[in-house]
Amino acid sequence: MQQEGQAILVAVFTLVFLCTILIVLFIVFQKHKNKLLLKQNEAEKQFDREIAKTQIEIREETFRNISWELHDNIGQLLTPAKIQLQNSSDNQEVIITLDKGLKELRTLSKAINPEALKNITLATAIKQEIERLNRLQYLQASLHIEGEERSIDHEVEVVFFRMIQEFFSNTIKHAKATHLKVTIIFNGEQLNVFAEDNGTGFNKNRPENKGIGLTNIKKRAQLVNAKVSINSTINEGTQLHISYTLKSRT
């Protein structure tokens, strides 16, 4: 009888012990789960903030570009039209000049639209930037697309476009380049974007060159899990390479 009582006591103790262990494990699991959820939520918020910041920077850069175009391109078109009106009895040349100016204004009106990038692909957005550079005669720019174009998440397109836009800006402001070439390659699940100029180049290991948009480009690549490399040789130019794995087709 005494042995049975001891056995029951041991069984109860064991059961209580196991229940306690399970409760502790459950509490630890819940805490760990909540911690992971908070971390994931914060990461998603940070991603949204970075995307919003990138979109704002794209618009700011677009407004700067439009300012240059209004001054350097459309102004040069409309000023001769005014002189032609004053000095010529033949209005045909004036009509042609004004027609060019109107076409430029329509192009600008599309570029200034904040929804513009939502309605076009990355390749089209880059093509428009290339056409703008050629229009302004800053340098000779070209775009080559290889493979079957694939759809890309809009957030990724925004980040990639800003990276390319930043490279263009550095080329114009610092590189003194005469040629700029962009190549977009769709190869199955892999997307590769190459941009290169024939400018003065720079030593990226020197402290004074760390801020030429390189840090921002690399941070943005990390934001969307892309790989990026930037190579530059003095007097030979600079090359940007972006590599990204596309989502599998369903």
Results as ranks from 00 to 15, higher is better:
1 M>P: 12
3 Q>G: 06
5 G>P: 01
6 Q>P: 05
10 V>I: 12
14 T>D: 08
15 L>P: 10
15 L>D: 13
18 L>V: 11
24 V>C: 06
28 V>M: 00
34 N>K: 00
38 L>H: 01
40 Q>F: 01
40 Q>V: 00
41 N>W: 12
45 K>R: 12
46 Q>T: 14
48 D>C: 01
50 E>L: 15
53 K>F: 08
54 T>L: 01
60 E>F: 12
60 E>L: 15
62 T>L: 05
65 N>Q: 10
66 I>N: 12
70 L>E: 07
71 H>D: 14
77 L>E: 02
77 L>C: 00
79 T>Q: 07
81 A>H: 10
84 Q>R: 03
89 S>G: 06
92 Q>Y: 11
93 E>M: 05
94 V>Y: 09
97 T>N: 05
100 K>Q: 06
105 L>F: 11
108 L>A: 04
109 S>D: 02
110 K>G: 07
111 A>R: 02
112 I>T: 05
119 N>P: 04
121 T>W: 00
129 E>S: 06
130 I>K: 03
131 E>F: 01
131 E>G: 00
132 R>T: 05
133 L>Y: 02
133 L>A: 03
138 Y>Q: 03
138 Y>F: 04
139 L>G: 02
139 L>F: 08
141 A>Q: 11
144 H>C: 05
145 I>G: 08
150 R>S: 14
151 S>F: 07
153 D>T: 01
153 D>K: 09
157 E>R: 05
161 F>V: 12
161 F>D: 14
164 I>K: 04
164 I>G: 04
166 E>F: 00
167 F>E: 10
168 F>Q: 13
170 N>H: 14
173 K>D: 01
176 K>M: 09
177 A>I: 13
178 T>C: 14
181 K>T: 13
181 K>A: 09
185 I>D: 07
193 V>Q: 12
195 A>I: 11
198 N>Y: 06
198 N>E: 10
198 N>Q: 06
199 G>L: 07
200 T>Y: 10
202 F>N: 08
202 F>K: 08
202 F>A: 14
203 N>M: 07
207 P>Q: 03
209 N>R: 03
210 K>M: 05
213 G>A: 13
214 L>W: 07
215 T>Y: 13
217 I>L: 11
219 K>G: 05
222 Q>K: 14
222 Q>F: 11
222 Q>W: 08
224 V>I: 15
226 A>K: 09
227 K>L: 10
234 I>Q: 12
235 N>Q: 13
239 Q>A: 12
239 Q>V: 08
241 H>G: 14
241 H>W: 15
250 T>I: 14
